[in-house]
Design a protein around this nucleic acid. Structure first.
Lengths: 332, 332
DNA sequence: TATACTCGAGTTG
DNA sequence: CCAACTCGAGTAT
């Protein structure tokens, strides 16, 4: 009932690159390489926080005592951060909570530190900013995965000799391909091309009104111009459904410990999608691409492929699998 | 088909404390209070990391140059941490990756820092340890929620004049209640009592072989002694199913941004549970308790309550709701 | 180098 | 501040 094919293609497209669920499981070497790459990137992004800490150290040095820090201009945010308040938490606090937090920092940690109070302040600032950096790295991981997939799709189109247009993330403008499209994946939000069956447009991270959720990958059988029109709020949300060919979840995380956790989220997201479309009489194809795939979830993915719940799936670390799923996507 | 009641009780138990989905939504004030409490706890737990940084600073002070740090005994872990490697990532790396990481730290960040290289080392150490602290705080949040619920269940039993036994997390021994059970929730893994319908045992975070997953809350119609026997691997996993009365998901996080994310995970987990039990002809009751409940998920929870998919649900911040769901649980 | 749990640090529309 | 995304920092079994 779900995942019914509307393109007269065989349903077992995944067999082009998968023989069994085992092929989906991430290898030790890919996990290792993923963690190494992440650490390198994190180190580079750590530098500004080190600089901020030095600036705070310098500014706080003007204070004679912990309490005197309140008189130093321009370090309020540094004090709040050192008080253990994440930027996220600040959005939920009342002004008085922030005052209390800073007073608590001074009373409980800076005053006991004696003459080392500036060091204590800076060290605690860095602890909180370490969590900041970690959070921001989570997003980097996701973005890198999207770029990797984008690169593979563009290669597939190029190799197939197909022209494409791509949408710039910032300007939202659609740009024709050029001979040097190096690094366009850094600021690419969508790709458009023509398959044998018509216009195709792929958009990342689109909020599909019908499901009221963001979907990682949305493939429409529309040209970009038509898509913009159909996204207008003037059109009934259910009108978009017939133009949706395939929807996919992309999970770029490399951590094996997160594999099952994030697969569960992906399943719930895909279920919402299927239910929302089914309610209006449509069943777009669904697919899953993940970097960290554990044995159990590989079994579940395989089962869903076999019973048609999922149409396709791939491990993002396996070039063959990625190439195959990109060819499938580009020829839908 | 799912959630069929086998205790001759009305299915609308949730109506004891919920009039509509709105009642489930977390208030701004509860969110605010949650973030404040978390920050206070985090500050206390930050202290050991500050101390570690001071120790590293002291030890590293013996080195004349960045490269000389390699000769300082006992700071290998400090160097790895400063190189941006989390304890988690270290488990996935080869010895050579670690050497490379430390060399990269020295070459790319410590040598450019000149005479400030020890400061640079310590600052980067703290950034990584800030992520450590953050990760550990995630677990603290979950543990606090479990304790809060435990406290409510014990109160319910006490008020009802029922004796109970509780299982110690560490020793796994079952202990009879005493007049002063203050703080037993800190090390409580299970509770056992007698309802009007028989022996009842509730266990937290139990791996249910049938579903091959950990379930936050498992209620059995068995005495602890019987349960131990039935957990033995000698017994067919499907044999446990008839003794499972109710299974629940507890999500203690306060962050509204995580609400939908973690509800999706909870749904997938509950679905696995239902499918696994359904396969062997059983349909235990299921329930959900959460601290961060957003509007959309409240609607979905309500819908599942109405159609019987979920039997009960509560917002952990609402005392009435918690008390009601505890009475329900204790009287099953 | 298991497996699968805890949850909020960011991010974007 | 609303909503819903990114994912790995820990933890326990």
């Amino acid at each position: 009932m779900y995942g019914k094919n509307n393109n007269s293609k065989p349903m077992c497209v995944y067999r082009n690159h998968l023989q069994s669920s085992d092929n989906l499981v991430t290898t030790y070497e890919d996990t290792r390489a993923g963690f190494v790459a992440l650490a390198l990137e994190k180190n580079r992004r750590a530098t500004p926080y080190v600089a901020q800490a030095r600036a705070l150290q310098e500014a706080a040095g003007q204070a004679d005592s912990p309490a005197d820090l309140l008189n130093v201009k321009g370090i309020e945010m540094g004090l709040l951060t050192a008080a253990g308040l994440s930027d996220k938490s600040l959005a939920h606090l009342m002004p008085n909570d922030k005052i209390e937090a800073i007073n608590g920092l001074i009373r409980n940690f800076l005053e006991p530190a004696g003459t080392n109070f500036v060091e204590e302040l800076v060290f605690r600032f860095l602890l909180t900013r370490g969590d900041t950096l970690g959070g921001s790295m989570r997003n980097v991981g996701g973005a890198l995965a999207q770029r990797k997939l984008t690169r593979a799709i563009l290669s597939t189109l190029t190799i197939a000799g197909k022209r494409y247009y791509w949408q710039h993330s910032k300007t939202k403008k659609w740009i024709s391909m050029t001979n040097d499209d190096t690094e366009i994946e850094l600021s690419l939000r969508g790709i458009s091309w023509e398959s044998e069956l018509g216009n195709r447009t792929l958009i990342y991270n689109l909020t599909v009104p019908l499901v009221r959720s963001n979907v990682d990958l949305c493939l429409f059988n529309l040209a970009p111009t038509e898509l913009v029109a159909s996204q207008s709020s003037a059109i009934d949300p259910s009108m978009v459904a017939p133009y949706v060919i395939a929807l996919g979840e992309l999970k770029g995380g490399i951590d094996p410990a997160g594999a099952d956790e994030h697969w569960k989220t992906a399943q719930a997201a895909l279920n919402r999608i299927r239910e929302a479309f089914f309610r209006v009489g449509h069943s777009p194809l669904t697919f899953f691409v993940g970097s960290a795939v554990a044995t159990r979830m590989a079994g579940e993915i395989w089962h869903q492929l076999e019973n048609g719940t999922l149409t396709n799936a791939a491990n993002l670390n396996e070039e063959n699998q990625v190439a195959s799923i990109c060819r499938w996507l580009c020829n839908l």
